[in-house]
Every structure is written in C-alpha cells, then in structure tokens.
Amino acid sequence: MEDDVSNPLRRMSSRTRKIAPKMAAALASSDNRTQATLARLEALENDNAGMETVEPIDDDEASLDDDDDGYVQKKQSKSTKRKTRQAKALENARKAPRNFLELLHEANLESLPPHVPSYGKAAVGPPSSTCRRHFCTVCGFASNYTCVRCGMRFCSIRCQVVHDDTRCLKFVT
C-alpha cells in the first residue's frame, strides 16, 4: 500500500504534488462520510443508544428468583469468585450474545446454489432512481449544503452551527 502511493508521487510534477495532499484529504473525508452514514444507520438498530456505558453482560451471574418475579444476583460461592480473570473472559466470550451479522457471516450463505432463496437474495436492492431528497439533519427542512467533514446535510448557517457543535463526526471514530 505504502509503495503504491509514494512511487508515483516521486515522479509527479511539483504542481501535482501540491494537489495530491488535497485529494488525499478529500478521499479521506469521503471515507469519513461513508463511515458516518454507516455508523448512523447502524445506530438505528441499537437498543440503548443513549446509554454511554455499555453494561457488562451479566447473564451468567443472574438467575431467576424463586418466586419468579425478576432477576437477582445469584450469590456466588467463594470458589467461583476466585475464578481467574482469564477464565472469566473466556466464558464471557463464549456466552456473550452475538449480533445477527456475525451469525449471518457464519452461515456462509454465499455457498448456496444460485437458485436457492436466502436472506441475502431477499434484500430489496438499491432504488431504481438515484435522486435523493436532502433534508437538513438539524431542522428537517430541505437542505442545500453538505458538511465537508462528515457528509451530513444542513440548510442554513444557524443549523450548521448546531451541527458543528453537537453531531459533526459523532459517528466517526
């Protein structure tokens, strides 16, 4: 990767060399934009989106109360408490619920013969018309501007300020 980029650069004229970093930045920003869009869509499937800290999965430590009215911490015996951290981590990795995309990947649906209907083939696919309406992500009204950093839309200076202050790059790591 490194070589591909640096070799042609060496042979470039000084003018191209000036432009190249800008293009690289633009490329990076379009990458940011895709990333931001994907992350934003991903967030729409979250359950506890607002909670900053994801709580540890404590399935194996919790159990049903005898009168069946909810979850209580099971009193751990001393021996299990002394479980090494590593063993604990391993166990959590095994028990942690996985997300659907992981299970999908494991199912290896691509190996199915082409005529067999499957989850992947049922996807509706891209829209036939590429025209996309743009709404301001701040106020919802029609927007004419795109943020150069993250690609989200805004309609006015006022909304841009809000965008910059609150959500710009929120979805980019």
């Binding site: 869509l41 696919g125 891209p126 829209p127 743009h134 709404f135």
Partner: peptide, 16 residues
C-alpha cells in the same frame, strides 16, 4: 417510503 433519503441504499416500499 424513501430509505435513500436517510443514506440507505435500498428501494422504498412501493418499489419493494
């Protein structure tokens, strides 16, 4: 009706 507005590369309900 228009998932594309949101940046999803998917057709809307009518086309679906």
């Amino acid at each position: 009706f228009h998932p594309a507005d949101l940046g999803m590369n998917e057709a809307g309900l009518a086309e679906c």
